[in-house]
Design a protein around this nucleic acid. Structure first.
Lengths: 341, 341
DNA sequence: CTGAAAGCGCTAACAT
DNA sequence: ATGTTAGCGCTTTCAG
C-alpha cells in the first residue's frame, strides 16, 4: 500500500547472498552467469518488483536516451505528424523524445534548445521559428558536435544535415499549374522573409512565370507570413490593387485557408472570381477543396530521426541533405478557366 | 573544434586549487562560501564552459525532472492544446514533458506508460484510448502512489485526480438547443461504449429528451466511435432508417465534420435537410459553421499540471476532480426550423 | 568559510 | 562463474 522504497540491485544481492555484480550480470543477461543463479536473481527481482534505475545507468554510460525536438508549433497537423515519424524510429531504439515548441519565436526557441541541452539530450531535431534568429546558436552546437538535424525550415548558411522537399520545384509546379489553367495575373503571398521555405517557394514561383514568359510583378508579391491570421492582410492588399490578380499562390495552407475564408466573407467566389492554391496540404485544405502540395510528413520525421541517430553513433558523420518527394494535388480551388460553368 | 570532453566540477576545482565541495556550493549559490571564491568559481566555470550534469544531480536527489503525458493522438488540435497548457505550468518549475500517443490503442497505451515509468517520470497525465482497457494498470500505479492525473477521458472506477468538463450537462445543453430549435427526431452518434465521455454525453442527451417529454428511441442512437472516418457508418445507418432523424448530435467534432462531408456527398443539405451539432469545438468545425461545445483545452492542461505537481509534492494528497466551464457555440449547422428561408 | 569523505544505483575492469 | 573495487558527476553531512 505504501510507496515502497525502490528496490535496488543491492537489495536483491543481499536477499540472495550474492554480489551486486552477479545481480547486474544476471539482470543484463550476461553469458557468464550460472543459469541457476540467473533464474534466482530474475525471480527475486520480480518478487521485489525491481525496476532498474535508468539514471544511474545513464550517468555511468554518459547517455540520456533522450533526443530533443524543437518545432515552431504543434497545433496544426504538420509538425505533430513529423514528430510521430520521429518517435516511430527512435522509440524502437529506446530513445524518448523531449518535444518543445517555440510558438514561432526565436527567443523561445533559443530557450528551448538550452533547456534541451541542459536535459542532456543526445541530439536535436529542429524546425526554426519564422524569424529565423538563432544562426549563431546553431553554429555553436554544430561546432560542439551536437548531433542536429533540421527539417522543413532550414538555415542555408549552416553546414548541417537536413530533411526537406524541393520547395522551389514544387512551387514551380503549383505556379505552372495555375498558368496552364489559364490564369495570368498570379499573385504570391510569401512567408516571413528570412525563412528558407519563403525564399525557395518564391523562387519557384518566379521560375515558373519566367519559363512561361510572364513578367514577374513585385506588386503581386506580398510577404504576409505563415500564420492563418495573416491572410486577411494579404487579401486586403491584393483586393485593393487597381489590377487585381486572377489567382493566388499562398506560401502554405493556413494562409490559403485564411484567404478563402476572407474572400468568402467578401462574397468573392473561388475559383469563379479568383483561383487559389496552397502548399503543405492540410486536412482543412482538403475539406475546402484547396489545391496544394502534399508533403510526406511522417516520412520527413522518420528520415530526420535516422539522420540524427547516424550522427549520434558517429559524431563525425558527414552532413547529409535528404530531399523527399512530394505531390501536387489538384482540387476545385484552381479549376481551369475554360472548365468553368 | 573538437567535441570538448565535458567539464565537471572536478576540473574547476583542480584549476582553482579548491575542493569540489566548494565548487558545488559556489555554483549553487550557497551562502556559506566566500564571495571572492564564488566569483572565481563562477568565472572559471564560464571559462571552461561548464554545464552541470543533471543526471548526476537527479540520481542523488532521486528525481528526474520528467513528467509523462499519454494521449490517444496528437494530430488534431485538442490534445496538443492540452499539452501546451501542461508545459506552460511544469516548464516553469523546471520539469520536462515526455509526450507519448497511444494512437487510440490500449495496448500501445500500456507500453507507453511502462516506458514512461522506466524513464523515471515523476508523474503522469493521461487521457485513455478509446477502448479503455488499462484499468488494472492504473489501479497498480495509483496503489504505488505514482502521481497521476486523468484528463478528458477518465475512468470512473478509479479513485484518482482528474480534470474534465461536465460532459453530461453540456450534452444536455446541446440537445436542449436542438429541441428549442424545433427539431424532434434527434439522433445521437455516440462514441466507443467504454469511454467516460460517451456515457456522460449520451446520458445528457437522454436527460434533455426526457426533460422535454420526448421519447428516447434506441433506433436513433448509434455507437460509432470517436474518429472522423467512422462518421460514414453513422450516416449510412441513419439515412436508411424508415423514419429519418431531423437532427444529429455527434459525440465530437471529428464525427460531426465527417457527417457533414458525407451528407454533402449525398446532396443532403445542412441545416435545411438535417441539423447537426458536435462537441469539443474544433477549428475545422468553426470553419464549417458547426454548432459545438467549446472546451477550455489550454486550461485543462494547466489545471492537470497543477494537480499533478501537487501530488508530486505530497504523495498522499487527496484526489481532486476539477470540473471546468465550457461554452455552447451556436452556428449555422443548427439553424432553428422557423428561421429557415 | 572550506575540505574530506560518503554515497545516489549501476556497470565494468580486474581478480579469483 | 562470481566477487571486489573503482567510479560516473554531483551534493551533503561532518569536521575543522
Amino acid at each position: 500500500m505504501s510507496p515502497s522504497p525502490k528496490t535496488t540491485i543491492k537489495d536483491i544481492a543481499k536477499a540472495l547472498g550474492v554480489s551486486v555484480a552477479t545481480v547486474s550480470r544476471a539482470l543484463n543477461g550476461s553469458h557468464e552467469v550460472h543459469p541457476l543463479t540467473q533464474e534466482k536473481v530474475l525471480a527475486k527481482a520480480k518478487e521485489l518488483r525491481y525496476k532498474p534505475n535508468i539514471q544511474a545507468r545513464n550517468l555511468l554510460k554518459r547517455r540520456s536516451n533522450l533526443i530533443g525536438v524543437v518545432v515552431p508549433e504543434f497545433i496544426t497537423f504538420f509538425f505533430p505528424e513529423i514528430i510521430i515519424g520521429i518517435q516511430e524510429v527512435v522509440n524502437k531504439l529506446g530513445y524518448q523524445v523531449l518535444i518543445s515548441q517555440s510558438n514561432e519565436s526565436s527567443i523561445q526557441e533559443a530557450k528551448n534548445v538550452e533547456i534541451l541541452e541542459a536535459s542532456m539530450v543526445e541530439g536535436i531535431i529542429v524546425s526554426v521559428a519564422k524569424d529565423c534568429g538563432n544562426v549563431d546558436l546553431y553554429k555553436r552546437l554544430i561546432n560542439e558536435r551536437m548531433p542536429i538535424v533540421f527539417v522543413n525550415r532550414v538555415i542555408s548558411e549552416l553546414q548541417a544535415s537536413q530533411v526537406v522537399i524541393d520547395d522551389r520545384k514544387w512551387a514551380f509546379k503549383v505556379t505552372e499549374h495555375l498558368i496552364k489553367c489559364g490564369y495570368s495575373r498570379i499573385a504570391h503571398l510569401a512567408g516571413n522573409n528570412h525563412l528558407s521555405v519563403t525564399k525557395e517557394r518564391l523562387q519557384g514561383y518566379k521560375d515558373a512565370l519566367g519559363a512561361y514568359g510572364i513578367e514577374v510583378q513585385d506588386k503581386l508579391i506580398m510577404y504576409v507570413g505563415v500564420q492563418q491570421d495573416r491572410a486577411k492582410a494579404g487579401i486586403n492588399y491584393l483586393m485593393n490593387l487597381k489590377n487585381k490578380p486572377d489567382a493566388i499562390f499562398a506560401i502554405n495552407d493556413p494562409i490559403a485557408v485564411g484567404c478563402m475564408l476572407e474572400l468568402k466573407k467578401r462574397g468573392i467566389r473561388i475559383p469563379e472570381d479568383i483561383a487559389i492554391a496552397g502548399f503543405s496540404e492540410s486536412p482543412i485544405g482538403r475539406i475546402m477543396n484547396l489545391t496544394s502540395v502534399f508533403q510526406p510528413t511522417f516520412e520527413i520525421g522518420r528520415k530526420a530521426a535516422e539522420l540524427l541517430l547516424k550522427q549520434i553513433k558517429d559524431r563525425n558523420a558527414a552532413f547529409e541533405t535528404i530531399t523527399l518527394d512530394a505531390k501536387l494535388n489538384i482540387r476545385h480551388s484552381t479549376l481551369p478557366l475554360h472548365k468553368r460553368p
